[in-house]
Every structure is written in C-alpha cells, then in structure tokens.
Design a binder for these strands. Structure first.
Lengths: 162, 162
DNA sequence: TATTGTTATACTCTATAACTATA
DNA sequence: TATAGTTATAGAGTATAACAATA
C-alpha cells in the first residue's frame, strides 16, 4: 500500500494496527466462541485463572496466579470462590507454609482450560493456512523476539517507576 | 529455546505470549507515561477518542467514532461531553443531515493526540534499536500481513454471528 | 417507520483498604 | 513485624434500554 519502510519497522503504521488488533481480539466473538467450546459457562477472569494454572502445569499460590495474570490478590480470591464451588479447582494448604494456599486444577478445570486453548490455537493455525512455511517460520522467530524485546522494555519502565 | 517449530508458526507457543504481551501492554506504565507527555490529564477512553479522530484526519460522526473504537454510541457521547467542555473537540451539526453531529478536533485536542502517538512510536522505535535493518523490514512486512489476516478472520466470525 | 444521537441505569472487571492467620 | 490470603468497598470502563429529533 505504498508505505515508506526505509530500513526500519514503520512504527507509525504498525502501532495503530497492533492496537486495533488488540481491541478487536479482546472484543471479537473469537474468545466468546472459544468459551462456548469450553462447554461450561465461565466469565473471562475465571477462565483466565484456569488457563494460567493449565499453562503453569502445576499448582500455584494465589499470589503467584495474581502476578501471572497481572492483577491484585483480592481479584483472584474472589474468582477462586466460584471456581472451587463449581469443582474446577481445589484449594489445599501449602505444606511448607500454613499461611499459603496451593490452587490446583481438577480434571474438569483442566479440561475446560485445554479446550479453550485448543480452540484458540486452532483458529490461529487456520487463519495462517495460506502462508508459506518459510514465512510462518520467520514470523514465529521474529514475533517471539519482538514480544520479548518489548516486554523487557516495558518491565524496564515499570522498574524505573519503583 | 528448544521449541519444535516444524514448518509452521508455533501457535501454541506464540499465542500465550501474544496474549501476555497484550495485557502487559495494557497495564504497563507505558501508556501512563505517554499520557503524561500529553501534558493534560485525560482518561483512556477520552484519549482514545482524540487518537481516533487524529488518525482519521477528518471530523467524524459519533457513530463512526464508536465503530472505530469498537464500542457503543452512548459510551462515546459521554466522553465527548467532557472533551468538549475542555475545548479539545468541537461538535458541529452535519450540514448534510441535521440529525448527525460531526466531531472535530481543536488545535489543543489534535496536539494532545499527536504527542501521545509520538511518544508511543518513539518507544517502539527505541525498543527495536538493536535490530538489523533486514529483520525490522521483514517483521514489518509479516506483522502487517499477520494482523490483516487475523483481523479478516475475526471479522468473518463476527459476520457469521449476524 | 428507520436512523442519529442522548439520557439514565446497570453490569463486568479490577483496585484499595482494613482485617485475620500464620511466620 | 512481615507475609499470605480474605473480606468489604470503590472506581473505571462499557453495555442495555428508553427516549428525542430528524429523515
């Protein structure tokens, strides 16, 4: 489209689209549809808790879940009530510290998170079905690095503010 | 890092990082810092209205702003009150349709949006300063295509649901 | 009667503050 | 006295419903 990409990523052009993609992804029916495939009704924060535990692959403390979700503790606590009531997670006292709780997925909770993740991965895979193998590989490599570098930059800003 | 990227973008690996980047970007102090550079205190929806108008490059109707922001009309109306009160936008009746209002940026509103966008672009540029020109170009090309394809896929889902 | 926008109200997600229990 | 978590409350952002004005 006649851009002027002389030797650098055209941040002025890519940034708005990245942000747009961001909001579209958040608001689209993609997540909604993926949640349908989960099979049980869950709000997004609740599902995020399950996905966080699923990706960790092991029980996590409340505080650790909060850190990974980038939210504060009370927010997690509140959703854990509902998730526990519905048999999707179990809350067990951490044997190494009586103050702490370890949150672990039940079979149903793990299944729900897996179905959600599979649905999202399938969709991404489908959307890129027409790409050449080389372009997919290159994008995977550069995008990982891109996210890493930007995340590091963001962390630096946040540290600076402390 | 020992991934198993055989001929396709490893969606299972990239997707969580993309989503994590998404939340980190939303919650980080980057946007906060960029808003500081704007010089006038604004909440995020208000700033998004200004940026939407700035990127359009011309006055927009209330409904059009809502569409571009992916929100509903009343949300925009509410923020326009405050923005108009503070002299950042003007509300003029559309000469071609007396029902509609055209929202246009004032000089201050336009300046605020510009400073915000510049700050974000500068940061992105800085974060990628160590990249080779070739990698930057390649990422720019593939990322644009990536966002286009995914956005198109999302639009297809949303259409389907209608 | 359909469309543009506004007003009024309610809901979702997340934060802060105050508290309890261990350490 | 510091830390892990909980309870209670408050705030930001956005949606839905009912309405007004114009087409």
């Amino acid at each position: 489209m006649g851009d002027e990409n002389h030797g650098h990523i055209d941040a002025a052009a890519v940034l708005p689209r990245l942000m747009q993609f961001n909001t579209v992804l958040n608001r689209s029916r993609l997540a909604e549809r993926a949640m349908d495939r989960v099979g049980i009704p869950l709000d997004r924060p609740g599902l995020t808790v399950l996905v966080t535990l699923r990706m960790a692959g092991e029980p996590l403390r409340v505080g650790e879940i909060a850190t990974r979700m980038q939210v504060v503790g009370p927010h997690v606590t509140r959703h854990l009530h509902e998730l526990e009531r519905r048999g999707l997670v179990r809350r067990v006292t951490d044997p190494s510290d009586q103050r702490a709780r370890l949150i672990e997925l039940t079979a149903e909770g793990s299944g729900a998170a897996s179905r959600y993740l599979e649905s999202m991965v399938d969709w991404f895979t489908d959307a890129l079905v027409d790409w050449s193998d080389e372009d997919r590989q290159t994008l995977g490599r550069l995008l990982s690095r891109f996210v890493d570098d930007l995340t590091a930059g963001l962390a630096a800003i946040d540290d600076q503010a402390t």
